[in-house]
Nucleic acid binder design. Structure first.
Length: 287
DNA sequence: AAAACATCCTGTTAGC
DNA sequence: TGCTAACAGGATGTTT
């Protein structure tokens, strides 16, 4: 499930492979991948040249030379690959951009959840509402502690659900949410507004460094994620909570447990990640 | 207002 | 062994 680090990995691959190439032909085996008028999409993209590949949260912003930007969201299993021209579509290939140099860009998506929409460059945030509402990028510069303190104080949502809300912080998905909560020793059901400023500072640091590390490791491959070169990520070997249900906590040895929080599978350590009421008692006991 | 739940989609796995 | 049911997940739409 591509989250920010995986999308960034894809972005870097596309940037390396297709900038400067012209789109000579488009094939659309699965028109539903396009949000809106798929014919207009084809017309608006044809003959343009790939100018730049940007990213915002989990969205890819594919800049074309003709003033259009393709906004692409991979959702669960979307992936791009670059193939020799004439390669047959795979079972789940949804769109093919044939290039001017005997290559073609494939977009494949086994679960068919991903979507693409054509927008006017610099108006994406207006034309794609969810893009316009995205919270800050989880970087040192964009995600300030003051901002964290402000938004967390205004919600009683479980912190796990809060972290998944793209309108609050952009780019965190189920895997990294579990990871940063484990690292921060925060119980996933803790109401967002009950976290102390110290805990928020820790959480913030962990979010920022986790994203950096995962990008450095070319993302996490759990099911099918691979970059444009067909290479899997490396970060799945470094996960400390996600996917480790029943295995010992790397801090205290207690087996990790799995629960549902806001309909999402959530793995955590029942000893290290203490519920708020227990933390309060401990704190008041020492006062 | 916000929380809960359904929806999309298909491959994989658990259970009988 | 072979079948079905449950499950996974991000974002969005609908209901409570």
């Amino acid at each position: 499930m591509p989250e920010l680090p995986e999308v960034e990995t894809v972005r870097r691959g596309l940037e390396k492979l297709i900038i400067g190439n012209q789109i000579k032909q488009i094939k659309l085996p699965y028109p539903k991948v396009i949000t809106g008028d798929s014919q207009a999409f084809v017309t608006g993209v044809l003959n343009a040249t790939f100018k730049a590949i940007d990213r915002r949260g989990k969205y890819l912003l594919i800049r074309l030379s003709n003033g259009h930007t393709i906004v692409s969201h991979l959702r669960m299993e979307g992936q791009y690959s670059v193939e020799p021209l004439g390669t047959s579509p795979y079972k789940h290939t949804e769109i093919i951009f044939e290039l001017d140099d005997q290559r073609a860009v494939f977009y494949n998506d086994t679960r068919r959840f991903g979507r693409m929409v054509l927008t006017t460059t610099d108006h994406e945030a207006v034309e794609v509402q969810s893009l316009g509402k995205l919270g800050p990028e989880p970087t040192d510069m964009s995600l300030t502690l003051a901002y964290m303190v402000d938004i967390f104080s205004r919600s009683k949502k479980p912190v796990k659900s809060f972290l998944l809300d793209q309108n609050k912080i952009a780019g965190i998905g189920n895997i990294y949410a579990d990871e940063v909560l484990w690292q921060s020793k925060i119980h996933p059901e803790t109401p967002a507004n009950e976290l102390s400023e110290i805990e928020l500072a820790t959480l913030r640091q962990n979010i920022i460094s986790e994203m950096k590390m995962a990008i450095k490791n070319h993302g996490t491959t759990v099911h099918s994620f691979s970059n444009v070169f067909g290479e899997v990520g490396q970060f799945q070997n470094k996960l400390e909570a996600y996917g480790r249900v029943g295995q010992p906590c790397l801090r205290c040895g207690e087996p990790l447990v799995k629960i549902k929080v806001g309909q999402r599978g959530t793995t955590y350590c029942p000893v290290c990640q203490v519920k708020y009421s227990r933390r309060t008692n401990e704190v008041s006991g020492t006062n």
